[in-house]
């Protein structure tokens, strides 16, 4: 009996010592050895975007701005503009005008801080031969590189996130890291994405892109005007995509691709405003959307300028 008691005491002491040691060890890891470690825990315990109140969001943004400044040695502003009420963004693309010059692609890269090495393009321009079956997109060529565009007998169709009203990617996300904002933009919270890429599989348009490694972008190339849900500097292991230049459009400006297009093939506006060019477009032009049978209800309208 005595021996058992003694053994038990020894055992319980052993357990206590172990627990003490473990607690100390855990606390030690929480000590900020340098700034990066502190923000690691802050990042880990960051709440979901929707659950945070404005003050918490501000805190998170400040931390992110600090981290970005540290990394890129440049003051980065991360905005958090909310959706303007009464606005639903729509996009129009004039297939009779696009010449396949890819200036929209690179304007987007410059504006939205995409990684250049490895290369990520949010816009893909597909080339089709005139007169051949094209609607199924199987005959498309995206690596075309002729000396001059447009080429005879070919036409060009840029594809980017279609900002669907019924987005299959939002449905597929297991953690609700991507959702549709009230103004219709489908956004990704890069601090909540777990990198499973189910959304990439679910997107019928191939519009989502993944950061397989740390984005390679030089500090001088960083656009400092960013949005939390848009073009702020990303990191390894998260999904990104076109956000209709949320940092611009929520401040009333046109997306970068619209302004870059030299032939005026791109149109943008508020679908809910009866006087906007987007409303005129869908009411008066022959519009179609890609893969309509899948019922994703995209807000990216392709049209032909000629005829009504």
């Amino acid at each position: 009996m005595k021996r058992e008691k003694k053994n038990r005491r020894e055992l319980s002491l052993g357990r206590r010592t172990f627990l003490k040691g473990a607690a100390l060890g855990l606390a030690a890891t929480a000590l900020p050895f340098n700034k990066a470690d502190a923000s690691f825990w802050e990042a880990f315990f960051q709440k979901r975007f929707h659950e945070m109140n404005d003050a918490e969001k501000k805190q998170v943004i400040e931390r992110l701005e600090r981290e970005a400044e540290q990394k890129y040695k440049k003051a980065i502003k991360i905005g958090n503009e909310k959706a303007i009420p009464g606005v639903l963004f729509g996009y129009g693309l004039d297939l009779s005008r696009c010449i396949g010059c890819r200036r929209c692609v690179y304007a987007c890269v410059e504006e939205n801080n995409q990684s250049k090495d490895p290369q990520i393009h949010w816009i893909t321009v597909l080339r089709f031969r005139k007169g051949e079956k094209w609607v199924d997109l199987e005959g498309s060529e995206k690596y075309y590189n002729p000396p001059m565009v447009p080429e005879k007998d070919y036409f060009y169709m840029p594809v980017q996130c279609q900002q669907c009203e019924n987005p299959p990617c939002v449905r597929a996300c297991p953690t609700q890291a991507t959702w549709k904002e009230p103004d219709g933009i489908v956004v990704v919270d890069y601090n909540w994405c777990i990198g499973c890429r189910y959304c990439m599989a679910a997107c019928p348009y191939g519009a989502r892109h993944f950061n397989w490694s740390e984005p390679g972008r030089k500090p001088e190339e960083i656009n400092p005007n960013t949005h939390y849900l848009g073009n702020r500097p990303r990191f390894r292991g998260v999904v990104e995509k076109c956000t209709f230049c949320i940092q611009r459009t929520r401040n009333g400006r046109y997306p970068a691709c619209v302004e870059a297009c030299p032939v005026g093939a791109r149109k943008f506006g508020n679908l809910l405003d009866p006087a906007s060019e987007m409303r005129y477009l869908i009411e008066h032009k022959r519009v179609f959307r890609l893969k309509e049978e899948l019922n994703t209800n995209p807000k990216f309208y392709y049209f032909f300028a000629y005829g009504r």
């Binding site: 303007i84 606005v87 129009g92 459009t249 009333g252 400006r253 046109y254 619209v258 302004e259 297009c261 030299p262 032939v263 005026g264 791109r266 149109k267 943008f268 506006g269 508020n270 405003d273 906007s276 060019e277 005129y280 477009l281 032009k285 300028a305």
Partner: peptide, 17 residues
């Protein structure tokens, strides 16, 4: 007609302004 509505040509500026 399209140009007057804003549907023809390069578009820059403010979409709501």
């Amino acid at each position: 007609r399209d140009w007057k509505v804003g549907l023809h040509g390069k578009r820059t500026g403010m979409w709501n302004g």
